[in-house]
C-alpha cells in the first residue's frame, strides 16, 4: 500500500544502518516493496516505493527505472559492482546497502510507520 504521506529517505538512513552508494538527494518514499524476483517487482511494485532486495545485478537498475522506484535498499551487506552503482547514479536511482537482513529491514521500516 502506498496511501501514506511521503517520507524523506534521508530520515530512514540511521534506522536502517544504511550506507548510501549513490547520492541520496532528497528522495521521497510513498511505501515499500520487498521482492527478489524482478518480474514480481515489475508486476506489483508501485511507483515511489523503496524496493528492498538482495539482488545486485544491473537489472535491478533497469527494473527500478522502469517502475519509477526512487530507491533500492540492498540487504545482507551485499554491494553491487561500481559499474552498476554508476549506472544507478546516472539514472537518478538511489542505491543503499545495509548489513541487516531483509526481514530485519522490513521490521525497521514498519516500525518507522511505513505502510
Amino acid at each position: 500500500m502506498n496511501t501514506q504521506t511521503p517520507i524523506k529517505l534521508k530520515t530512514l538512513l540511521p534506522l536502517l544502518q544504511a550506507e548510501p552508494l549513490t547520492d541520496t538527494d532528497d528522495a521521497n518514499l510513498t511505501g515499500c516493496y520487498i521482492s527478489d524476483l524482478l518480474s514480481d517487482v515489475l508486476a506489483y511494485a508501485r511507483p515511489g516505493v523503496l524496493w528492498v532486495t538482495i539482488q545486485t545485478h544491473r537489472n535491478v537498475v533497469s527494473v527500478a527505472a522502469m517502475k519509477d522506484v526512487p530507491a533500492v535498499l540492498i540487504t545482507c551487506g551485499r554491494k553491487p559492482d561500481p559499474q552498476i552503482v554508476m549506472e544507478a547514479q546516472e539514472e537518478g536511482l538511489v542505491l543503499l546497502s545495509t548489513k541487516l537482513t531483509t526481514y530485519e529491514a522490513a521490521g525497521k521500516l514498519w516500525e518507522a510507520g511505513i505502510r
Partner: peptide, 15 residues
C-alpha cells in the same frame, strides 16, 4: 539467482 525465473514474464506481458 539473478532474480529471473519468477514465472511471471509472460503473465506480466499479457497483463
Amino acid at each position: 539467482e539473478l532474480g529471473f525465473g519468477a514465472g511471471m514474464g509472460l503473465p506480466n506481458i499479457k497483463r
